[in-house]
């Protein structure tokens, strides 16, 4: 039983990372109808930046975190401006491929700049553990869970109470109507990309201590798709719930099932969900107009 709970907590921590990446997908998808396949690579870029700030430049963890977030916000809107804006309105297929191309570019640039070795960063939580009865929880995992909860609260407040947040919601509900109301829709798109890059960057920095930082970290982004689909792709709480579910499923199947199941568990869940309830657990099923 203790093993089980231990696995579940590990799964929740990993699932929070999936959830944060999925959140990035959902933010962009809701606002712009674009699915950003480069989200995992953006997360990876965040992790590598944190390595530069923390390990190479020797900055304080919190300062480095802040710098990373600022850098990624700028990079995020830059990506939107350079890659996505020129092709806005093209078929979905083209846009998906453009973001896949963006992902390839980021991954290989990261490989050229930082090399292909495994890198590590030290954080205030490294090696710390919290004992709770018989349970032993690494502070790293705990920090992910706490930070995810904090980030979600912040996002909620942002969308609920700030003018920009409400304008973003309006944009995502109806682009044209928002435009008529005087909302600068194009700038909103840039901001959404920044926001989603920030979320991905946080995921990357939180994940960095529990895995190595390497050029294949971006593939985690693909595992976040099942999370987003499970949550219904349009729903922010859904993305998080989906991420945590996928994390737990993966962690448990790694522990109880034979080798190999861990890697595909997320995709099996994904296909099952698509067959059984394609709109996701939290999605709404509205018919589209012609």
């Amino acid at each position: 039983m203790l093993d089980f709970i231990q696995q579940v907590i590990g799964g929740v921590a990993l699932g929070c990372v999936y959830g944060l990446i999925a959140l990035g997908f959902v933010l962009i998808y809701k606002a712009t109808e674009v699915v950003n396949f480069a989200q995992g690579e953006i997360m990876m870029l965040g992790a590598f930046l944190s390595f530069t700030f923390i390990a190479t430049l020797g900055l304080n963890y919190w300062l480095a975190f802040l710098l990373c977030v600022i850098c990624m916000a700028i990079l995020g809107s830059l990506m939107e401006r350079l890659v996505v804006r020129p092709i806005l309105g093209y078929p979905q297929f083209s846009i998906v491929m453009a973001t896949i191309g963006l992902g390839l570019v980021i991954r290989s640039l990261v490989g050229i700049i930082w090399g292909t070795d495994d890198l590590r960063i030290e954080t205030p939580f490294t090696n710390g553990v919290v004992k709770l009865g018989g349970l032993v929880i690494a502070e790293d995992s705990l920090s992910i869970i706490v930070a995810t909860a904090l980030l979600c609260a912040l996002l909620y407040a942002f969308f609920r109470f700030t003018r920009v947040g409400i304008a973003m919601q309006a944009t995502s509900q109806n682009m044209l109507a928002a435009y008529y109301m005087g909302i600068p829709v194009k700038r909103m798109f840039s901001l959404i990309w920044s926001l989603s890059a920030i979320v991905a960057c946080c995921a990357g920095i939180l994940l960095a201590p529990i895995t190595f930082i390497h050029a294949n970290l971006g593939f985690l982004g693909i595992k976040a798709f099942p999370a987003a689909v499970l949550g219904g792709f349009g729903s922010i709480p859904g993305a998080l719930a989906g991420g945590i579910t996928i994390g737990i499923v993966e962690s448990l199947s790694g522990f109880y099932l034979p080798e190999g199941f861990k890697d595909v568990a997320a995709y099996v869940v994904l296909l099952a969900v698509l067959l059984w309830r394609p709109q996701g657990l939290f999605g709404s099923n509205a018919m589209k107009k012609v």
């Binding site: 991954r107 290989s108 990261v110």
Partner: peptide, 19 residues
Amino acid sequence: NAPGLKSLIFGLIIILFII
């Protein structure tokens, strides 16, 4: 000589072609 050169070029080709 970077190992990722090919995917860099592929990525750029995809983006530039689509745009």
